[in-house]
Design a protein around this nucleic acid. Sequence first.
DNA 1: AGATGTGAACCAATTCACAGCA
DNA 2: TGCTGTGAATTGGTTCACATCT
Lengths: 228, 228
Amino acid sequence: MSDPREPIASRRGIPEATVARLPVYHRVLGELVDAGIAMVSSEELAAASGVTSAKLRKDLSHLGSYGTRGVGYDTAYLVYQIARELGLTQDWPVVIVGVGNLGHALANYGGFASRGFRVVGLVDADPSRVGEKINAGPSGEAVEVRPLAELEDVVAEGEACIGVIATPAGAAQQVCDRLVRAGVTSILNFAPAVLATPPGIELRKVDLATELQILAFHEQRRSNEVTA
Amino acid sequence: MSDPREPIASRRGIPEATVARLPVYHRVLGELVDAGIAMVSSEELAAASGVTSAKLRKDLSHLGSYGTRGVGYDTAYLVYQIARELGLTQDWPVVIVGVGNLGHALANYGGFASRGFRVVGLVDADPSRVGEKINAGPSGEAVEVRPLAELEDVVAEGEACIGVIATPAGAAQQVCDRLVRAGVTSILNFAPAVLATPPGIELRKVDLATELQILAFHEQRRSNEVTA
DNA sequence: AGATGTGAACCAATTCACAGCA
DNA sequence: TGCTGTGAATTGGTTCACATCT
C-alpha cells in the first residue's frame, strides 16, 4: 500500500470511461463501509457496481495500486482514494438556473449537499418564483431564489464554478453564455438544447427525452425481432 | 433516395453510440423543419447538433442513404426516417414509480407526451400522495397517483413496456423486480442504486450525483494543472 | 462543382489470460 | 494458493480522405 498522503490526481490521463464509473464505485464502497465491511474483492465490488471484475481492476489500476494481492481492497482506504481522485474531499459551490419542476427537484435533492456539492445560488426568470426560499439539501440551509438579472452577482458571491441549467430550451444558450462569462467553468445542462461553449469549459448534459428515445429504439428492435 | 415505405429498422447493428446521438439529430431537425428550412448539409446539421460532419454522415449512413450528393438532406424526410428508426412513430406507454420532487418533475415534463411517450400510470408508496391527480404533459390528461401495492395492475392496465424509477435508492431494486415481473422490458432508473435485471431487459440510468462528480473531477484536474 | 457515403487508418475501451505478489 | 495488476489481443468508435453521384 502506498502512502495516502502522496500528491494524487497528478498522474495524467485517467480514461474518461473510467472517470465516469468512479462515482459508482465510490457510492458502493461507501455503502460497504457503512455496513461494516472492511475488505472486498474485485469480484464482489464489481458485482455490486454492475461491471466485470476485469474492468474494475483496470479502472482502479489507473488510480494506483491500492489493493492487496491474494486479499482484496480495504474499503475505507479505497473509498478515500477515489474521493480524493474525484475531488470530493473539498466541496464545490453550485448555482442552479431555473427553478421550475426540475430545478426544484434538483435543489431539494439530498445527494447534492451530502456529496460535496453546495448550492450557493438559485436563479429564475419568473418574478413569481423570485424570493422563494428553498431548502437546498438536508444539511443545506434555505437558499433564496434570485432574479435572472442577478445571475452574475449570484455566481460571483458564491464563487460558483459549477452551473446547472434547468431552464426551458430556448433560454439555455443565453444562460450558458452568461454563466461562462461570470466565471463558471463546468456546466451540467438539463435543457433539451445543444449548447456551444468556449474551449476549456467542461459541459455535460442529461436529457430525459433522449434516454427514453434510446429505450424506445430497443423496444422497437425487440418487437421487430419477434416478428422477423 | 430510397422508397420511404421500405421495411426499416430491420437492418441489424446500428452502433450504440449512433443510437445515442439519433435523438439529438431528431430534435435539431425538428427545429429546422419548424423554422421552414427544407434542406440542410451535413456540415450545418452537425454544427447544430454539436458533432463533426464526418461523425454525422457515418451515423446517418447506418440508417440508409437518405441524402443527395452535392445537395444535402431533406429535413422533413430525414426527421421522419430517424423517427421511424427510433420507434417514435408509435407511442410508448410509460409508468413512473415514485412521485416525489423528481417524479413530479418527470410527470409534468412536456417532452414526455410531446415525443411519443404516454404516461399511463403513476405509483407512489406514500399514502398521502396517493389519489393526487397529476397533469402528465400538455396533451396528456390528468393521471391519478396509485398506491405502490397496485404497481402490477397499473402496468397491466396501461400495457406499459417502459418503467421509470424515481424512488429513493433503497426501494429501487424491489421496484425494478416488480416492474420486470409485471412485464416491463425497458427501465430508466433515476435512483442512485445499481440495479440488477434479467437478460433481455434494457436498463439505462441517469444519476445526478454522478454527473456532478465527473464535473468535479475535471474541476480539480484544472486547478491541479494550474499549480503544477 | 459540391456534398454525400464509405473504405482505411487511427484511437479508445474492453476483455483475456497470466505474471507477480501477499 | 488466491487475487491483484497489467501486457496483449480484441472490439467498438472516430477521423481521414477520397471515390461516387447529383
